[in-house]
Write a protein that binds this DNA or RNA. Sequence first.
DNA 1: AGGCGAAAGTAAGCAGTGTCAACATCGGAG
DNA 2: CTCCGATGTTGACACTGCTTACTTTCGCCT
Lengths: 191, 191
Amino acid sequence: MSTSEKSGYHHGDLRAALLTTAMQMLEAGESFSLRAVARGAGVSATAPYRHFADRDALESALAGEGFRDLRADLVGDGELPASLDDLAEFGVAYVSFALRRPALFRLMFGTPCDDENDERVRAAAALNELLAQALAQVAPGADAGALADAGWGLAHGLACLYLDGKLVAGSSGEVEARVRAAFAAVTANVG
Amino acid sequence: MSTSEKSGYHHGDLRAALLTTAMQMLEAGESFSLRAVARGAGVSATAPYRHFADRDALESALAGEGFRDLRADLVGDGELPASLDDLAEFGVAYVSFALRRPALFRLMFGTPCDDENDERVRAAAALNELLAQALAQVAPGADAGALADAGWGLAHGLACLYLDGKLVAGSSGEVEARVRAAFAAVTANVG
DNA sequence: AGGCGAAAGTAAGCAGTGTCAACATCGGAG
DNA sequence: CTCCGATGTTGACACTGCTTACTTTCGCCT
């Protein structure tokens, strides 16, 4: 009870509270409105405008969190992939993230990106760099750029297609298996 | 002037007119509203409800058109790909479609799919089947399913990433080149 | 301590949206 | 010719993002 509800008028840390409730709505349901977020934080409809320029700014902040979380998921055990098999696990983790937090994933990628939000751009760039490093380490000989594009593209594409139900699998275990198979089919003799 | 404006009250072929204006808005700007579409067709705000259950139904119909158009683009010259190089051209065409008609592409894939729209589902399935056929023909020996997943996933992922600006290229020619390179990096020794 | 400016919140309101219910109009089958 | 069902219209409701103007509170300076 350090940074919360001090007086009833001034919230204490509204910005964080708004991000939290917005993220919860994203995880639970699907869409959210600024007004609903404000309501959830127990605050008037226009209060969020003291902390976010507009709806897009809130969404960008959430997307930034999303990129950091995704990066954390990918790098989970703290090691970059050292082999092509490890690379496939990157893909599996990427797709799992998308399926586990679909609304967030859509927010991160589905929206036309306003490239004016520093935090969001930086978080996305960090993710990009992580993938490039991983790829370069796995296949030092090959065309690193093209391979990085392909790796990210494949993971991202599978994530989107499973998310949209364009590709269908019964269980999450089956999804993982098929993602591994797709990576295997393609990395068969690379490097 | 065969199927248009007969009396001023009854439109003649509102459903088609709505789809046309909605598609035009999609091509030109970004988003559209049911009301704006109705306005564009010169009709009251609620008239569309005689032809579409709700906004989603209109969007699904547009998405259906999109899937058919995409299929036509991919199969343009009338031939399925006979080699891996041809397959890369599939990917190039896929990405080009996404970049040429971004709003439509987002509508087709970005929206949580309501799988109750027959037309849309059928159109998407047709596209899926086309890709599977193509892949099976190119690499008859390999794991056809996994390869089809990988091919579609790679094309789709690159399309999304370029569309969102997560991958950046100066000209459309450069995009094409990088898509080809990504496919090449990955299909190097497949089959 | 006290007061004062800025920060953080509220209230009222505008334009726009998706959708519903009730009403108007017209073309075509009987 | 008449009437009925398909097609369009009007009006309204609840909701949204956002602006403007007002109020409350915090914290710093003297």
